[in-house]
């Protein structure tokens, strides 16, 4: 099946099995390895990407579903001011340990703030509840999001 979509703001056309997992298409066909496989069943969020600005689990997203949509991975997002605010927040708060979950958390944070620029702590926790982290116990990630909101005031 021919699939046309935008990937990190560039128009792309691929001929591919529409049932292929978007995770594999991004990693294998486009070399976008910030997208990680942690569970393969939508439970851990390490593969979260943005589709039309919203977080989705690419491991359970069939390639055929992105026709005509805009897909953004961390590779495409990391050149933005919003990213910079998130990066600084995560750096300063100590949000990162092993790092395998981190790209997913960055993308989930963007999706959350895009929809709700001033979330409460409970809303941050809910917004990140699809992303598992086994190292930090989450509090320092939540703190990272708070710092990002502060630094990025007005960007979302």
């Amino acid at each position: 099946m021919i699939i046309e979509f935008r990937l990190n703001h560039e128009k792309r056309t691929i001929d591919i099995d529409p049932s292929a997992r978007m995770l594999d298409v991004l990693r294998d066909d486009f070399g976008l390895t910030s997208v990680k496989e942690g569970c393969g069943e939508g439970e851990c969020g390490a593969c979260v990407i943005l589709v039309d600005g919203r977080a989705m689990n690419s491991c359970i997203l069939p390639a055929g579903a992105v026709c005509g949509k805009s897909v953004v991975t961390l590779e495409g997002f990391k050149h933005t001011k919003r990213y910079r605010a998130i990066e600084n927040g995560f750096l300063k708060a100590g949000s990162v340990q092993c790092g395998f979950c981190t790209p997913g958390f960055v993308m989930a944070t963007e999706s959350l703030l895009n929809e709700n620029p001033h979330p409460t702590d409970e809303e941050i926790k809910d917004g990140l509840s699809g992303n598992l982290c086994r190292c930090t116990g989450y509090n320092m990630i939540i703190q990272g999001v708070r710092l990002a909101i502060k630094e990025g005031e007005g960007l979302w």
């Binding site: 529409p18 049932s19 594999d24 393969g40 069943e41 939508g42 359970i60 997203l61």
Partner: peptide, 28 residues
């Protein structure tokens, strides 16, 4: 029939970096 895929893609998943197991054409 494929809507959001969140149940179907998990039910048909086969493994690391492998396409899920579908035998019929998909309608999105």
């Amino acid at each position: 029939v494929m809507a959001g895929g969140t149940d179907l893609m998990v039910q048909r998943a086969r493994g690391f970096s492998i396409r899920p197991d579908f035998d019929r054409p998909l309608v999105f």
